[in-house]
Amino acid sequence: MSNKLKWSLILIVIVLALLYVFLEMNRNAFSYMFPRRLIRLFAIILVAFVVATSTASFQALTNHHILTPSMLGYDSIYLLMQTVLIFVLGSTHPLSSSSSLLFFVTLIIMVGLSTILFVPLLRYLRHDLFTFLLIGIVLATLFRSVTSFLQMIIDPNEFSIIQDRSFASFNNMNVSLIYIAYAIVIVTTIVFQHRIKELDCIALGKSQAINLGIDYNKATTEMIVMIGILISVSTALVGPIMFLGLLVVNIARSILATYKHSALILISFLIGAGIILIGQTLLERYFNNMIPLGVVINAFGGLYLLYLLVKEFKRI
């Protein structure tokens, strides 16, 4: 199939990664800059993998191609949590300032909350996509409103800390967490590997999946837990970036000639890594980190969503 596509994308990503690490490298500061850039490169690869896997899985589960987990409020759960933590405990409290502790608290609450919310939603409302979406959007709006309410009455200094965490950024992530994040993502992927293989069947619809011998309820529940863990790790590491998923998975789908989700995830991952690498190289080297990467991705993601919607309308 798309072996040629696959290898040329891998090549492009490798070139972009090399550019990212070595472009504008100061010879005297090599020992300082090199390890830092390398760690960021690892983070970029991890995030691209998470974005591709979780979005492709989520779209197979909901049988819909314009959905991303972020539209159902994963990101707003994250923002609400950060805000509540800082509001209640203050930014100097060990829980809100110590990154490792914060990382695990964020992880556990996000996985727990998303499982409690989305498993029943998906089970009972899968056929009723509009209600499913509506409830998701209402929940996301609720979380966002509580968040902005708290941000209104919070101390302005604390507010700027929250503001920092609201956009994805590879610059102020905690370096010591990258190993833990990698470990969690690798273990999760291995544990749920058999479910990822079932995605092709699940995308055929519920009755067809059951006919082919898939334990449907168990499979969808496990997938939601998996998506929850992956997104939480990535969000806790660099902030909300899931909107990128919409972009990369749909681009991958439009250039791929196959239905296979393993290929879809791989190509989406490569495209995602490429996009983040280009963005990060430009922002870091030429814009002096004036803009967080998350803002740029949201802007382009939003434009692409508009394009997808217009395309859908034209088809009708």
């Binding site: 049988n63 191609h65 092709d200 619809g205 009755s207 082919l212 011998g213 898939i214």
Partner: peptide, 22 residues
Amino acid sequence: KSNELAKKLSILKQDNHILLKL
């Protein structure tokens, strides 16, 4: 087991709209 049953019995329902390029 659902998989064992899938080797003995198959069902075709009428709601078969899929989005995949197949």
